[in-house]
Structures are given as C-alpha cells and as structure tokens.
C-alpha cells in the first residue's frame, strides 16, 4: 500500500460520509479540511494546518495546489518562499506544492467536487477554479498549456 493509493483504498471500503462524500469514493488527502463555506485560500489552509501540534506527530503532510500562473515571475517565486517561511514560523512540519497541469484542470472541470481546493490565477487575483465560469476555465486551461519557465 502506498500513500498515493491509500486514500483510494480506504475510501473504497467506506459508504457515504457526513462531509458530503459519496460511497466508495476516495478520502481527502493530507491533513487539511477542504469543505466548508469558508474556504479562503492558501493562507487559511496554512493557518488551519498550523493548529495541529506538529511537533507531537511523527510527520504531517500538507499539499497546496496551484496553477503555474500563481507562481509566475520573480514575484510569484517570492510569494512561494514567503508562504513556506510563514507556515514554518508557525511550526508546520511539511509542505509541498502541486503545480497542476492542464490535464488536471480538465479533470477538475469534469468533477469539481474533487478539486474544490484548486486555486488558479485568474488575472490580477487568484480564485478557486471550480468557482469560475466554463469560459474562463477554458481560457485558463489554454493559458496553462502554454506556460513555460
């Protein structure tokens, strides 16, 4: 059993759950809750995760998903560094960044509930991909396919 498939296996033996998840579907990854009407972006997720007493665990796993545009340019890079430093100031144990591909965005279009935590850069701001109109989602997917570093 591997960490990547465990949420799938464990979910497959559990019926519907009170977080709105349907029967036999995968569990959420990692330590941070993603449902709820107060999703407020990466800083909120980090603050939320920092409430765990990490030093008492043997290790925690926090995954943040971004599209490349959120991290674009020197500024985007600086922000990434600053997010990490802030989380660690709060004694977070681990963080990793999933910079998602256009393929993942397509999947998110098809199954928005599984990608509720996906943040994309829209224009001058970042927003949840699943909250955007289809037209805008298409635009971002096209953009993502062409982002190069």
């Amino acid at each position: 059993m591997l960490p990547t498939t465990c949420h799938v296996y464990f979910g497959s033996v559990i019926g519907a759950t009170a977080d709105g998840r349907r029967a036999w579907e995968p569990l959420s990854e990692g330590i941070s809750p993603v449902q709820g009407s107060d999703r407020l972006g990466p800083t909120a997720v980090i603050k939320s995760s920092s409430k765990l007493d990490h030093a008492r665990t043997g290790g925690t796993l926090l995954n943040l998903k971004f599209t490349p545009q959120v991290l674009e340019g020197d500024e985007g890079l600086e922000k990434l560094v600053q997010l990490v430093r802030s989380y660690f100031k709060l004694s977070g144990h681990h963080i990793q960044f999933n910079v998602v591909s256009a393929k993942t965005l397509r999947a998110a279009q098809g199954e928005p509930e599984k990608y509720r935590d996906l943040i994309v850069r829209v224009a001058g701001y970042s927003d949840y991909f699943c909250d955007l109109s289809e037209a805008l989602q298409e635009e971002i997917i096209t953009r993502t396919e062409h982002v190069a570093f």
Partner: peptide, 12 residues
C-alpha cells in the same frame, strides 16, 4: 475579504 492577495500592493 480576500486573503492571499498578491496583486493589490506589496507582499501577501
């Protein structure tokens, strides 16, 4: 109230 604004002034 939008958190993690990175385009409305300096810093986060």
């Amino acid at each position: 109230i939008m958190k993690y604004s990175i385009h409305d002034g300096p810093g986060i």
